[in-house]
Computed example of a mutant assay.
Amino acid sequence: MLTTTPLPIPTHFDSRRVAEVWRVPYEERAIAAAAWANEYGIAPASQDDVNICLLAIDVQNTFCIPSYELFVGGRSGMGAVEDNVRLCEFIYRNLARLTELVVTMDTHTAAQVFHAIAWVNEAGEHPPAMTMITRDDVERGVWRANPALGSRIFGGDAEQLQAYARHYVQQLESEGKFPLTIWPYHSMLGGVGHALVSAFEEACFFHAIARQQQTRFELKGSNPLTENYSVLKPEVMMDHHQRAIAHKNTGLIDTLLDFDAVVIAGQAKSHCVAWTVDDLLREIKARNPKLAQKVYLLEDCASPVVVPGVVDFTNQADAAYERFTTAGMHVVKSTEPMESWLKL
Results as ranks from 00 to 15, higher is better:
36 W>P: 02
71 F>W: 10
85 V>F: 05
58 D>Q: 11
88 C>N: 09
43 A>R: 11
33 A>I: 13
65 I>H: 12
72 V>I: 13
60 Q>A: 08
69 E>I: 05
84 N>V: 15
37 A>N: 07
61 N>M: 04
30 A>C: 09
83 D>E: 12
76 S>M: 07
38 N>V: 00
97 R>L: 04
57 I>T: 13
87 L>N: 11
65 I>N: 01
43 A>T: 09
35 A>Y: 03
42 I>Y: 05
48 D>K: 02
100 E>W: 07
48 D>R: 01
94 N>W: 06
70 L>V: 14
102 V>S: 05
71 F>C: 14
102 V>M: 12
62 T>V: 07
89 E>K: 13
102 V>E: 11
74 G>W: 03
87 L>W: 15
35 A>W: 03
41 G>V: 01
52 I>K: 04
97 R>S: 13
94 N>V: 09
96 A>Y: 10
102 V>G: 02
98 L>I: 15
102 V>N: 09
77 G>A: 02
101 L>F: 14
98 L>R: 03
33 A>V: 09
102 V>F: 06
49 D>T: 06
55 L>D: 11
52 I>C: 00
40 Y>W: 04
60 Q>M: 08
52 I>P: 02
51 N>F: 01
77 G>M: 00
89 E>V: 05
84 N>G: 12
92 Y>K: 09
102 V>D: 10
52 I>S: 01
57 I>K: 12
49 D>N: 03
70 L>E: 13
65 I>P: 06
41 G>Q: 04
85 V>L: 10
86 R>A: 12
51 N>M: 00
59 V>P: 13
83 D>V: 10
68 Y>S: 05
68 Y>E: 06
96 A>C: 14
51 N>C: 00
47 Q>M: 08
92 Y>S: 00
47 Q>S: 01
61 N>I: 00
68 Y>I: 02
63 F>K: 11
60 Q>R: 11
75 R>F: 04
36 W>H: 01
64 C>G: 02
97 R>F: 06
73 G>I: 15
59 V>R: 03
81 V>G: 12
81 V>R: 14
50 V>H: 00
44 P>H: 06
95 L>A: 11
90 F>I: 12
43 A>F: 09
37 A>L: 12
59 V>T: 05
72 V>M: 15
78 M>S: 11
100 E>R: 14
83 D>L: 13
33 A>M: 07
37 A>Q: 05
67 S>G: 01
35 A>G: 10
60 Q>T: 03
96 A>P: 15
67 S>I: 00
78 M>W: 10
98 L>N: 03
47 Q>E: 06
87 L>K: 10
83 D>C: 13
82 E>D: 14
49 D>R: 08
95 L>C: 08
81 V>C: 13
72 V>S: 13
41 G>Y: 01
32 A>K: 09
77 G>H: 03
92 Y>C: 01
101 L>K: 04
33 A>W: 01
45 A>W: 02
82 E>P: 12
30 A>W: 09
81 V>S: 12
74 G>K: 06
67 S>C: 02
70 L>H: 10
71 F>H: 14
77 G>I: 07
68 Y>D: 08
53 C>D: 11
46 S>Q: 04
54 L>A: 00
40 Y>D: 07
42 I>P: 08
83 D>Q: 11
86 R>S: 13
88 C>L: 02
33 A>S: 07
76 S>T: 15
101 L>E: 09
39 E>I: 01
32 A>S: 08
80 A>S: 11
48 D>N: 03
84 N>S: 15
43 A>I: 06
30 A>M: 09
38 N>W: 00
59 V>D: 05
